[in-house]
Structures are given as structure tokens and as C-alpha cells.
């Protein structure tokens, strides 16, 4: 027979099993970083009267110093100032492209899922057809047709990235519409549109919002890739991709700071967006709504 002995639970385990940390503490670091980034990219170009395109070959390739915190590039331009402008462009691309792709994807997924039948099959084959082409390749073709510009980059990213949202929304709608609460709404006289707008879309909103926020850094990376390939913004315009592309030449002569600064800013912004979207996802869960006090 097994000898059972009562032992008190160690204090360390009691602490571990305590209530979870307030989401405010999870949100704070990411939100602070995002707020600083947003304020910087919005306010600095308006307040600081400095030309990010100002070339001064006398101070070219200077490492970080008190005068130039992130150093200067091969044309003597201040890397920190260019980073601010670059993030401004990259975040614009990221946010606009993410929102457009989410709207297109949600519309396609919601229609396919709620109408179903042959309409669903046709739309999903369209999604499969677009997904079968590598999206970077498709993006390059779109930019090539439209000529490289900020608008072309946004359109190319939006048109190649709505598929994920469409699939997420469709599968969620298919799952939701089989639930008894949808039957209950129909019994209560709700039309197809009312069911879609009052029940299906609000219930898929958390997933769509999460996919959209995660899409922002992805779109920034995509813009970076297009610019790196010379298909994004014009070479003189500051974007994170252009800066990294320009900086690769300087790596050979030891100019590590030129790629480190924009790369680091991109990673930090990506992590901050991911952090905020994680807390947002939890916040939108109705089962947790009354447990959260912020």
C-alpha cells in the first residue's frame, strides 16, 4: 500500500499558481515602444527643420558619435534622421496595405462562408489560384506593371496578402454558422445580412484584427524586400528596405551601423506590434471581458 503523506505546497508554487499578471503589464512595454515610434515618425519631420537628403561627403561613413547618434551613410547623410523618415514610409505602407488586405480578405471570406455552395467553391478556387503563385513574385509583377512607387508597393502587398484573411474568415464563418445561436437568430427572424453583420462578422473580428496587426510588420518586411530588390521606392527616398539595401555595400568597408540601425528599428517595431496584438486578442475574448479591469 502506498504511504500517503500530507505536505504543504511550497510557497514558490503557490506564487506561480496565483492570479495572472494584469494585461496592463504585458501591454505597457509594447505600447510604449509603439507610442514612441509613432510620435517620432509623426512629429519629428514636422518639428525638426533638417533635410534627410542633405549630402555632406566630408562627414561620410562616420560611425555613431554624439553629433550623429546612428552615424552617417556613404553620402554623409544622418542615419538616425533617415531612419525616422524610413519608418514613416514603411509604417504607412504596412498599415495601409494591412487594412486593405484585411478588408478584401474579410469580404471574400465572409461571402464565401455565409453563402456557401458553388459561390464558396468558385471563390476558394480563386484564392487557391492566387496562392499558388509565390506572392513575392506576384508582387514584383504588379509593381513592374504599375511602375515603382509608394502606391504601387501598397497595392502589390495588399493584392497578394488578402488570402490569409479570406481563409481565416471563411473557416470561422463556416464553423460559426453551424452553431445553434445562428439557428436561434434565424428563428428570431434575422435576415442573412443581419446574421452576417450582427453575429458572424463581430465573432470573427478578433481573428481578423489579430491577422491585420500581424500583417503590419509582415507588410513592412515585404516593402523592405521590394525596395531591397530595387522595385520599391525610388533609391533616394528613405525606406527601411532602401536603407538596408544601400548599407550592404558599406558593410564591406566596415560600416555596420548603416544596416544595424534600420534593421534594429524594424525588429523592435515588429515585436511591439506583435506584443500589442497579443494583448488585443485576449481583450477581445468575451469570456475574459469582465475579468479585465482596464
Amino acid at each position: 500500500m502506498t504511504d500517503l503523506t500530507w505536505r504543504p505546497v511550497p510557497r514558490s508554487r503557490l506564487t506561480a499558481a496565483g492570479p495572472p499578471r494584469s494585461p496592463r503589464w504585458r501591454l505597457l512595454p509594447s505600447a510604449t515602444v509603439l507610442a514612441i515610434v509613432a510620435l517620432t515618425v509623426l512629429v519629428v519631420p514636422l518639428v525638426v527643420d533638417l533635410n534627410q537628403q542633405y549630402v555632406d561627403l566630408a562627414i561620410a561613413n562616420q560611425p555613431p558619435s554624439a553629433a550623429h547618434l546612428f552615424g552617417t551613410d556613404e553620402l554623409g547623410r544622418d542615419v538616425l534622421l533617415r531612419c525616422v523618415y524610413a519608418l514613416r514610409v514603411s509604417l504607412t505602407v504596412g498599415i495601409v496595405a494591412a487594412v486593405i488586405s484585411a478588408v478584401v480578405g474579410t469580404a471574400v471570406g465572409a461571402l464565401a462562408g455565409s453563402i456557401g455552395g458553388w459561390f464558396d467553391r468558385i471563390l476558394m478556387r480563386l484564392v487557391d489560384a492566387v496562392a499558388s503563385v509565390p506572392h513575392l513574385l506576384l508582387g514584383i509583377v504588379i509593381v513592374a506593371i504599375l511602375r515603382p512607387s509608394l502606391t504601387a508597393v501598397i497595392i502589390s502587398i495588399a493584392l497578394t496578402h488578402w488570402l490569409t484573411s479570406a481563409r481565416i474568415v471563411r473557416s470561422e464563418v463556416l464553423s460559426l454558422r453551424a452553431r445553434p445561436f445562428i439557428d436561434a437568430a434565424i428563428v428570431g427572424g434575422a435576415s442573412r445580412t443581419r446574421v452576417l453583420t450582427r453575429h458572424l462578422l463581430p465573432n470573427v473580428a478578433p481573428q481578423v484584427l489579430l491577422a491585420t496587426t500581424l500583417m503590419v510588420p509582415h507588410a513592412v518586411w515585404h516593402e523592405t524586400a521590394l525596395s531591397f530588390l530595387g522595385l520599391g521606392l525610388p533609391p533616394h527616398a528613405a525606406s527601411v528596405g532602401n536603407m538596408i539595401n544601400d548599407a550592404q555595400r558599406s558593410l564591406l568597408i566596415g560600416g555596420w551601423w548603416m544596416s544595424l540601425a534600420p534593421g534594429l528599428l524594424l525588429i523592435i517595431t515588429t515585436l511591439a506590434v506583435s506584443g500589442v496584438s497579443g494583448v488585443w486578442r485576449d481583450r477581445l475574448n468575451p469570456k475574459r471581458r469582465t475579468e479585465l479591469t482596464w
Binding site: R179, P180, F181, A184, I186, V187, N203, P286, K287
Partner: peptide, 24 residues
């Protein structure tokens, strides 16, 4: 389903209340 014109003449009470209400 959606097209029934006599829809509101019938009320239904489902087996599992938790699944038959919108969680939001």
C-alpha cells in the same frame, strides 16, 4: 431557413443554452 415567410410563428428552445446564445 432565411426565406421562410412564416418564420416568426414558431419559437424554438434549444437543448444547450450555452451554445444557443451569442457569447458576446
Amino acid at each position: 431557413r432565411f426565406g421562410a415567410t412564416q418564420r416568426t410563428r414558431i419559437g424554438v428552445l434549444f437543448q444547450q443554452p450555452r451554445l444557443s446564445v451569442d457569447p458576446r
